[in-house]
Simulated assay, not measured.
Amino acid sequence: MYIRQANQIVLSALESQAAVVLLGPRQVGKTTLALRIAEQQPSVYLDLERNADRQILIEPDLYLDEQAGKLVILDEVQQLPGLFKSLRGQIDVRRRLGFRTGQFLLLGSASNVLLHQSSESLAGRVRYIEMPPLLLDEVGEDQLNGLWLRGGFPDSFQADTDKASMAWRTDFLRTYLERDIPALGPRIPAATLGRFWTMLAHSQGGLLNAAALAEGLGVSGQTVGRYLDLLVDLMLVRRLQPWHKNVGKRLVRSPKVFVRDSGLVHALLGLETMEDLLGHPVVGGSWEGFCLEALIAAAPTGAEPFFYRTAAGAEVDLVLRLPRGETWAIEIKRTTTPKVSRGFHLAVEDIKADRSLLVYAGERHIPMAQGLRAIPLAAALDMLRGLRRNG
């Protein structure tokens, strides 16, 4: 068992808010975390995928009135969209009884669905927290290659062998395609969506080309957009938007698309071992996506991620706009020889970055020209965590 950083974030949020929504894909560890929190205080837990637990909430106020003063944990809460109006009333009643914080912990695996369901009913009463898969600073720097290869879903990362890990991820993908996504309502053939997901893995970190994807699948561009929206909503794919502040530049307007968990990238492409991965053309895109997800997760709450690219060739892999107004430009390269192109320095000038970093596969900290510094991934994560700790 690993100590998840989300654990302390959730506990702190419960101390200041009546309700906390913990978002993350299935099997990422939300339920394990919630049950660990439940052991520390009076609480009740309901899994809303179980019919018996849903039956308990047919008349939600009758049940929830009896739980006042306890932490009520509702898992897969998007299964009961009508519940949020009752939760608003429950929170207000409990406030009058003196129970102002730490009343509800809501777990969900569909972000936009939950945000839409809860934003109107629970406005001002709820904090949203996203729980990523296992992070490098949770498992240890010495596990970097294993985490990159297998991804951060706990059962995949902790499997006894690479073969067993691949089998788990293959089953995970099949379950999402055949059960979990249809349960949300969309009628999408599993084989078609599986092909789409695999096509995204092949072009990991590339610019979105909806027309090419549509042609490859034999569907319309609008349908491709719907498929992508769904996988983004399930927190399985990231759509990284381009930086858009430089009005005078000819900027690339298309987003970059990443399958968010590197282990799923490798499962979709059949890459079971590190040798398989290192010999595959996706290795650079996979490493970029792996580092990018870790950096975004480590950044202070409220940080906004982008990439920057112009028609003239200026480019930065990750631009972080931090809550205090700073802008960081981060280049990511799978190399032990730190070097960036002239286009990176041009991009740093364009966006007026306050700090520029090269995250590379070496172990040393190397100062470079024009204020650039090459550092290992773990060091970059420490820098961002430090900003988060200092407020």
Rank of each mutant, 00 (worst) to 15 (best):
V44H: 07
V259E: 01
R373K: 13
A303K: 05
R385S: 08
D155P: 08
T327P: 00
P255R: 03
D180N: 10
K339I: 13
L74I: 04
G225L: 07
P189R: 12
P25F: 06
Q79I: 05
A191M: 09
L149F: 11
V77K: 02
G248Q: 09
P60T: 10
G69P: 11
R250S: 15
G102W: 07
T170F: 09
V139D: 06
T31K: 00
Q8R: 14
A299C: 11
I73D: 05
D137T: 02
Q8P: 02
E138G: 11
D229V: 07
V316I: 15
L135P: 06
R385L: 14
V113F: 02
V283A: 14
I73C: 07
T223M: 12
T192F: 03
R169C: 08
D137L: 02
L134S: 10
L106W: 06
E15F: 01
H345V: 06
R324T: 10
T327K: 06
A164E: 15
G285C: 12
S156H: 02
A298Y: 00
A123I: 04
W287T: 11
K339S: 09
L87E: 07
Y360K: 04
R239T: 07
M199I: 11
G29F: 03
P42K: 08
E120P: 02
L251Q: 09
L231R: 06
A183N: 14
E349N: 13
L22C: 04
P305C: 11
T301G: 10
M274V: 11
G29H: 00
S203D: 12
L147D: 08
L346E: 07
Y176L: 14
L62D: 12
G152K: 05
D75K: 04
L208F: 15
V93P: 01
A123H: 03
L278K: 09
I37W: 03
Y360M: 10
E49F: 05
R324L: 10
P132W: 00
Q103V: 08
F84M: 02
A378M: 13
L213D: 05
T327C: 05
S341H: 13
L135N: 09
L46E: 07
D261R: 03
A314Y: 03
L173Y: 14
V247T: 12
A210M: 10
D233I: 00
G391C: 12
R187T: 14
A159Y: 03
Q158F: 13
P132I: 02
Q55D: 10
H116F: 10
G146Q: 14
S254A: 15
R342P: 02
I330D: 02
L264S: 04
L231T: 07
E275T: 15
T175C: 14
L381T: 00
S121G: 04
E39N: 04
D276P: 03
R321F: 07
G386P: 08
L184A: 07
H116I: 09
D137M: 01
A190C: 06
P60K: 00
F258S: 01
G391P: 10
G89S: 12
L193F: 14
Q158W: 10
A164R: 13
I332Q: 02
